[in-house]
Amino acid sequence: MTRFLITRILSAVPVLLVVSLVTFLLIWLVPGDISAELGGTDATPEELEAIRRRLGLDRPLWERALAWYGDLFRGDLGYSYLLQRPVLDAVLERLPVTLSLAGLALVLATVMGLMLGILAAVRHNTLADQGAMVTALIGLSIPDFWFGIVLIILFGVWLGWLPTGGFVALTDDPLGWARSMTLPAMTLALTQMGVIARMTRSSMLDVLGQDYVRTARAKGMPRGTVVFRHALRNAMVPIVTVVGVLTGILLSGAVVIETVFSLPGVGRLIVGAIQRRDFPIIQGGLLVTACVFVFVNIIVDMLYGWFDPRVRDGR
């Protein structure tokens, strides 16, 4: 297990390298820098040049990149030009928002997706099956940000049950956190729910048709037990896999949801940094989120082994 972990963690290094290289490419692409914003409307070209020199923006990008990697080795992600604070602090402060959103969305999507999927598989070829699958398909097909706007109007304005936006920290007020996160998480969960429901159904159907499950049924094991002990456990393998993949998609999705629901998350932090050319935040923010992505995928790999005895024993 330890060796497996070490291998996995080492294999994360090239991923992070690619992410940081693509980020530099992106910085190289965007014209303009932050000097105009810092210099004010009246700044002369000389003053702008002085600001660039002070921030090192006059050096060629490869030099800046080397310096950045050097700092990274010392555990320093740099300093935000605009927020006037260390990048790591700024990103870590936002991470709870995005993680709350992504985490809750995953929970919602998994619970609802599993329920729909199991229902469909167990009642295979019935109206319930079709109903569940149509629901899943609709979930897959609706643009989620659009769904979010509709939810705001419905639950925020017309019914007035839930806040229309904003974030409450879990540590401050668990109830407020849940209320503030419900609509955004539902929005983000919509598509993923559809994916998980469809996957659960098909892998459950595969497993339910297999010999050992039939044997278990034949031995008189209650239906519910068979479904949950044997079938579902095996069906977890692709589900866990999809959770890992979804983590990557979630940040992209979170950018939009954070905008619609006015949430101060990492997505909006990075978008703001791109729009204002606050390069250290772009670099640091993307690296930290890539780390989260890699970390979740390592966990996913471990769960994968745990749920699938063949993988576990094969190691």
Binding site: I149, I152, I153, G156, V157, G160, P163, T164, G165, G166, T259, V260, F261, S262, P264, R268
Partner: peptide, 18 residues
């Protein structure tokens, strides 16, 4: 001063009394 980029969300928040 709450920073809300989406104008629709601003109006919704005003109507909801937030």
């Amino acid at each position: 001063f709450r920073i809300m980029p989406d104008p629709g969300a601003q109006v919704a928040a005003l109507e909801a009394g937030e």
